[in-house]
Design a protein around this nucleic acid. Structure first.
Lengths: 228, 228
DNA sequence: CGACCATTTGATATGGATCAAGCGATGTGG
DNA sequence: CCACATCGCTTGATCCATATCAAATGGTCG
């Protein structure tokens, strides 16, 4: 539904560019695409692209957090993944997006023309290899997600916390950018179950919850055990 | 656990080759790899590769059916996918297999050296494109699987039947190569729930079950509606 | 025919959903 | 600055879909 106007939009924010790339554990594979993109800001809860729209761009998170999701006919929402700064999203099978994407928090996203990437990939085989690597990584993520979805509520939440802790910068500390509803829709549970499970983990001294969005992993080994 | 002896094994069955490729809806993308492989037979329930083994080969089903799966520490098994003749499997993120693979029925599988494919891909960009296409298709399959796993038992079974019907040759008729246990482990349900759901669908006149392994889609539209 | 295995069917238990308040932070208008 | 509405989160009570436990049935192979 949202028509990208990358040129016009990004021209309003001409200060960013590749320079604005946050200091992160680098994803070396995709670096060569960075120069091809136009940075673009998205406000909290704004749609970046919609399901079934033509997949004309790849996207790289510069700052903020992004969710991809699908909604079933009766309104159930499944979140496909959360993307943090440095992550690339929008890579999918076929010419249309299978999921929708929204900014969870105010975010800056690099838009990279898919046609430019595939053109580059057909000339430069390191670029092709990088694109393959990104797609395979996404596949691995989806496979892990499948494994999460067959577990008990405790195991799903423990797995989610470990995943977020690994991806964040502070080891053993998580600053959740997403709501309980987002977590629930990622894990295939309800907000009530997420909340109850977190308080239970706190009672078990596995975690502590200084605030509802901040989680300290007090006993990661216990979480890993729960993880199945 | 299983060390492939592709050359020695396949030399015992030197009659197959690309000629033995079953007549199927072709997957045009991977045809250029076919000549690079060595066909190899696997008996029912034999392991093709194990989780965490080096992923030195890609595999293409020539006949029979293959399942990939992961087992959690407590014995729960999740089936990642079923592969029918013409399908390629063993494409994963990283240098090791994330799943194990077994023949469900006696099967012939083409083994294709991964190094040969990547070497070809770095020279020939159509080959690179084909490999990317296979990986992206696998990603799409995993994403659909995720969507299945958040649904009710009826929806999962309906979705599974529609998926199998699309992939099989006879429209509206399914000859299941796998057991109820396999279906259960694919859908994250129990065999009892699979069985009960199938009999319920039969009572609703959505399907009929001439035998336990044969399913006729009597009312595909009803199934599609159930699918969510 | 008889043993074995896969599948179906039945009875009961339970984990997580649903329904329903409460609570705490954040923000807004008076 | 405070009263109050709002929103996200937590907590409690009950319900229900599916798991679990158990037994019967049926199909296959020696």
């Amino acid at each position: 539904m949202l028509a990208h106007t990358a040129q016009t939009e990004s021209s309003k924010h001409a200060g960013y560019g590749a320079r604005a790339r946050p200091v992160m554990a680098p994803h070396p594979l995709e670096d060569s695409f960075d120069l091809m993109g136009a940075p673009m800001p998205f406000a909290r809860n704004m749609e970046i692209y919609g399901e079934n729209e033509p997949a004309d761009y790849f996207y790289k998170v510069l700052s903020g957090t992004v969710r991809t999701y699908k909604v079933l006919s009766d309104g159930r929402r499944q979140i496909g993944a959360f993307y943090l700064p440095g992550d690339v999203f929008g890579i999918e099978n076929g010419p249309e997006h299978a999921f929708s994407a929204e900014a969870i928090s105010n975010a800056k996203v690099l838009l990279i023309k898919r046609s430019a990437v595939t053109a580059l990939a057909s000339r430069d085989n390191t670029a092709a290899h990088q694109l393959l690597g990104l797609t395979a990584r996404e596949l691995g993520r989806a496979q892990n997600h499948i494994m999460l979805l067959i577990k008990t509520a405790q195991e799903r939440v423990a797995g989610f916390l470990l995943e977020m802790a690994e991806r964040g910068q502070a080891p053993g500390e998580i600053d959740l950018p997403m709501s309980r509803q987002d977590i629930a829709d990622y894990l295939g549970l309800t907000i009530e179950t997420i909340s109850r499970t977190l308080t239970h983990l706190e009672n078990c001294a596995a975690i502590s919850l200084p605030t509802s969005r901040r989680i300290v992993l007090r006993d990661p080994a216990a979480l890993r055990q729960l993880n199945g």
